[in-house]
């Protein structure tokens, strides 16, 4: 099949069943060269199974995936040569030194012998593992091991990078570093990255695929999807004020959005506002509290959980979406 050369990855009705369970159900999408695409979904949505089929670790029950035009079922080696894959729990050989491991993996992936040293050096530099190349992998911190695994995924200059939950199990500092690293990779590579954390995908990706219960629920550019998700944003405020007066003032500021005021202990009031698209009354709310001398202890926009994202996207009960 002759495919569009600008398309680096084409998933074509990918389906995977384990016994009677359908883990991935008829998933199709395309990724163009230079894109950074996020695959978002809660645990058990079928992200890892989809990525494993793309990486050739699992065979699809039906459908196919093509990497730079090479089918993962008909030309698995050709497809894998063009792919750099970081599995969810990137496991390395603890008895090898980091540099030795990267040279081994480069040779395994067919990097010509004369180029191995240069490629290992470049990948190590990019992933910041140069200082630990001579150390045993078993002695490295989890963050460093993750970077060595990422350097491994890059070492043969793949056309497509597939990263499965690359920040899973890292501490916040390591997560920030990993995110910066992935963003810098994106300048030179096409990347497909999976995550169950919405802000992570929002921060790094151009486009997002949302998977739920094995199905592709939605796909689109991140800003569009974010706008869709944040169309109905909820503002939460805790303030000490007389209830009726508070309700009247806030309703005026909310511009027609639904307002609920509930008393809390010690005269505190909790205000919840369903603001309309594009509306953010937080500065006005803060100014109101200051003007009236009402003590304000909390004012925030509620971040949507993934489940709420699904609600926002489908307008349905997320548990009823897939089937």
């Amino acid at each position: 099949m002759v495919s569009d050369p600008s398309i680096i990855l084409e998933a074509d009705h990918l389906t995977r069943r384990f016994g009677r369970v359908t883990a991935v159900d008829d998933v199709s999408f395309q990724i163009r060269r230079g894109e950074i695409v996020g695959m978002l979904g809660p645990n058990g949505a079928g992200k890892t199974t989809t990525l494993r089929m793309i990486a050739g670790f699992l065979c699809p029950t039906a459908g196919d995936a093509r990497i730079a035009g090479r089918s993962v079922t008909d030309d698995p080696l050709g497809a894998r040569r063009r792919l750099g894959y970081l599995p969810e729990h990137a496991a390395l050989y603890p008895d090898m030194r980091a540099g030795e491991y990267l040279r081994f993996r480069a040779a395994l992936k067919g990097v010509p012998r004369a180029r191995i040293a240069a490629r290992v050096d470049e990948a190590a530099e990019l992933c910041g593992v140069r200082p630990v190349l001579r150390r045993l992998i078993g002695e490295l911190s989890k963050g460093y091991r993750q970077r060595v695994a990422l350097a491994d995924a890059l070492v043969h200059e793949p056309e497509l990078l597939v990263l499965d939950e690359p920040t899973l199990g890292l501490d916040p500092n390591q997560i920030r570093q990993a995110r910066d690293l992935i963003r810098s990779l994106a300048e030179r590579h096409t990347v497909l990255i999976s995550s169950h954390i919405l802000p992570e995908i929002e921060m790094t990706c151009h486009r997002v695929l949302i998977l739920h219960r094995g199905r592709l629920l939605a796909e689109g550019p991140v800003p569009e999807l974010a706008a869709q998700i944040h169309r109905r944003r909820r503002i939460m405020m805790q303030v000490r004020a007389p209830r009726d007066e508070l309700l009247r003032e806030v309703t005026r500021l909310a511009g027609g959005g639904n307002v609920v005021v509930e008393p809390l202990p010690e005269d505190w009031m909790e205000v919840r506002i369903e603001a309309r698209a594009g509306d953010d009354p937080r500065p006005e709310l803060a100014a109101l509290a200051a003007r009236r001398g009402w003590p304000l202890r909390e004012l925030r926009r509620e971040e949507l959980s993934l489940e709420q994202v699904f609600l926002a996207l489908t307008g349905a009960d997320p548990r009823g979406v897939a089937r």
């Binding site: 050739g56 894998r80 496991a91 050989y93 395994l108």
Partner: peptide, 14 residues
């Protein structure tokens, strides 16, 4: 056990 099987089998080797 260690999970290196996945890394091994997704390399371009038979």
């Amino acid at each position: 056990r260690s999970g290196t099987f996945e890394t091994l089998m997704t390399a371009p080797v038979r």
